[in-house]
Amino acid sequence: MNPEPAVELFALARRYGFDMVLKDISLVLSAGKTVILAGNNGSGKTTLLKILATRLKPTRGSARVFGFDLHKEAKEVRRHVAYVSVLGGHYQTLTAFENLRLAASLYGHDRQEVTVAELEGKLDAVGLLNARNKQVRTFSSGMKKRLAIARLLISDADLWLLDEPYAALDQEGKSLIDDLLIEGKSQGKTIIMASHELEHTRKFADGVLALQDGYLRKLESSPLEVVSD
């Protein structure tokens, strides 16, 4: 396991126009922990996840992921981070297999490293093997979410950022996410999951954080160090 803290945030802030969505957020999260990020719609959960995924730049403050500076060493950070968005991020006219093959290539795996059988194995794991050759535009929201999980599984990321992973999923799909969280935890992955399903997800978590009025608060006793609390 990586000896560095998985996430270190120092007085992080993010503004959209005149709206300060995140204010003075500081956090130290040890590697291997699972954290739920709670908060109302528009509280800044997705913004925080996107900052950690290097997609958004903070307006103020700094952040490190596994010791790498988010801004100066963004490419290194991206090697360690996988983000599952609400939208899915798939190409609609490509098939499920082609999307997964593309993701494997862009994660740096060539065709010898990740074989067809392995990719099919990931599709099978998320229940999409039968839809292997169907274009994603024909998929339901739940199927797109499953494909995003398959993409997460082929990354070598140590930090999983899951944005509403239970959204749009049926009961079987939700069980799939439960299994994913258990497996990720057993593999020592650090998981930050934005979710409204607190009651269901807290059993997997080492701690619950909530974003309120732009500040990060620790909701339950946990091994997290939330400096701004």
Binding site: E76, S85, G89, G108
Partner: peptide, 18 residues
């Protein structure tokens, strides 16, 4: 246009590629 559908371009920017 296809990149903008369902956040594909955003996902593309988060891969560890230059």
């Amino acid at each position: 246009q296809s990149e903008l559908e369902e956040g594909a371009f955003e996902q593309l920017l988060m891969y560890p590629i230059p």
